[in-house]
C-alpha cells in the first residue's frame, strides 16, 4: 500500500474515538489486545507452521503478574509488566524445550494441554490468583502522569503498541532469522543442510510469542481493572489463534485485520439473538474454507480487481 494509503488510515484511526460510541471504542481496545497476543500466535503459525493453542496461558500469566504486583505488592505497573514477561519467558523456555520436539497435531495438543494445565493452576493457586473470585482493583495505567481511565485514552496506547508489535514481527520476518524460519517451514531438510539450528529457532519463536501474550495480558489487566480465571481459558486461546487464521498469517497486516474481526464480529452478531454464537462459528468456518489467505488475502484480491493501478501491475506480472 502506498504512503498516501497509510496516512489516510492513520487519520481515520485518530478520528474514530471522536465519532464512535464508548462501547465501540471499548471493543477496539479489546481488538488491540487480540492484535498483540495474536501477533505472537500468528508469528508461530505463519513462520513456523506451529499451531499454538496455549497463548491464553501467557496472557493470564501477564495479567496475574501485573495484578499481583500492583495490588498485593503495591509495586508500580512497569514492574508488574516486566515480571509477567520474565515469568512467561521462564515457562516458555522450560516447557518449550521439550514440547517443541513434537510437531504437527502433537505439538498442537501439547500447547492445548499447556493452556489447560495453566488454567487449572490459576484456579488452584488461590493465594496468588484469587481463585474463582480473581483480583479486583488493578490500578489504571498512567503515562506521564496522565491516567488512562477511559476507553479512548487506552485506545491511544494500545493501538500504537499493537502496530509496533506487528511491525517488529515484520522486520523480524525479513531479517536473517526470519528467512531462516521460512526455510525451516518450507524446506526443513534443506535448512538443516545449511546448518540452521531448527530447534533453537523454534524455541526463539515460542519465546517471542509468549512475551507478546504476556504484554497483552498485563495491559488487559490494567484496562479492565479486574483479572479472573474465566478470561484465560481454552476459548480465549482459540480466539487468539483465530486472529492470524482469519486475518491471514502470512502478513502482519493480517494480524490487525484478524484482530478487528475477532473482536468486532461476535459483538455485531449478538444483536441477532441467541443464535449469534452459531453464526460466529459459521463465519469462521467460512473464512477457513473460502479465504485460505485470510481476509487480507481477500482484500488483496479485491484490490487487485478493483483498483486500476494494481490491475495493470498484475497484468504485467502475469504476462511476463
Amino acid at each position: 500500500m502506498k504512503y498516501s494509503g497509510y496516512i489516510l488510515l492513520a487519520i481515520v484511526w485518530l478520528a474514530l474515538p471522536f465519532v464512535l460510541e464508548r462501547h465501540a471504542i471499548d471493543l477496539l481496545v479489546f481488538c488491540g489486545f487480540y492484535a498483540v497476543a495474536g501477533a505472537g500466535v500468528g508469528f508461530l503459525l505463519g513462520q513456523g507452521g506451529i499451531v499454538n493453542l496455549g497463548q491464553a496461558a501467557f496472557y493470564g500469566l501477564g495479567a496475574y503478574s501485573s495484578a499481583y504486583c500492583t495490588v498485593q505488592l503495591g509495586l508500580p505497573a512497569p514492574v508488574g509488566i516486566l515480571t509477567g514477561v520474565v515469568v512467561s519467558l521462564c515457562l516458555a523456555f522450560l516447557i518449550g524445550r521439550p514440547i517443541l520436539r513434537l510437531s504437527g497435531y502433537f505439538l498442537a495438543l501439547a500447547t492445548l494441554a499447556l493452556g489447560i494445565i495453566c488454567s487449572n493452576l490459576f484456579y488452584e493457586a488461590e493465594f496468588i490468583t484469587g481463585g474463582t473470585l480473581g483480583i479486583p482493583g488493578v490500578p489504571k495505567l498512567s503515562v506521564l502522569g496522565f491516567a488512562l481511565d477511559t476507553p479512548t485514552k487506552f485506545y491511544f496506547l494500545i493501538w500504537p503498541v499493537a502496530v509496533l508489535c506487528v511491525l517488529s514481527m515484520r522486520s523480524l520476518m525479513s531479517s536473517r532469522i526470519g528467512l531462516a524460519m521460512q526455510a525451516m517451514r518450507d524446506a526443513p531438510e534443506a535448512a538443516m543442510v545449511l546448518a540452521i539450528d531448527i530447534s533453537r529457532l523454534k524455541l526463539w519463536m515460542f519465546l517471542i510469542s509468549s512475551v507478546l501474550g504476556s504484554v497483552a495480558g498485563s495491559l488487559f489487566a490494567h484496562y479492565v481493572g479486574f483479572v479472573n480465571v474465566d478470561s484465560f481459558g481454552v476459548e480465549r486461546s482459540i480466539f487468539f489463534l483465530l486472529v492470524p487464521v482469519i486475518g491471514g498469517a502470512a502478513s502482519p497486516a493480517g494480524v490487525l485485520v484478524g484482530a478487528l474481526f475477532v473482536g468486532l464480529v461476535p459483538e455485531a452478531l449478538s444483536v441477532l439473538g441467541d443464535i449469534h454464537r452459531v453464526l460466529f462459528g459459521l463465519a469462521l468456518v467460512a473464512t477457513v474454507v473460502f479465504f485460505p489467505d485470510g481476509l487480507i488475502g481477500l482484500l488483496k484480491r479485491l484490490a487487485d480487481t478493483c483498483i486500476p493501478a494494481r490491475r495493470q501491475a498484475l497484468k504485467m506480472e502475469q504476462s511476463r
Binding site: E21, R22, D26, D230, S231, E267, H276
Partner: peptide, 20 residues
C-alpha cells in the same frame, strides 16, 4: 444483552447500556 458467560464481553455490554 448476552455476555456469553464472558466477563470481558460483559464490560462491553455495560459500556453500551450505560453510555450509549
Amino acid at each position: 444483552e448476552d455476555d456469553g458467560s464472558n466477563p470481558d464481553a460483559a464490560v462491553t455490554k455495560a459500556n453500551n447500556l450505560i453510555f450509549s
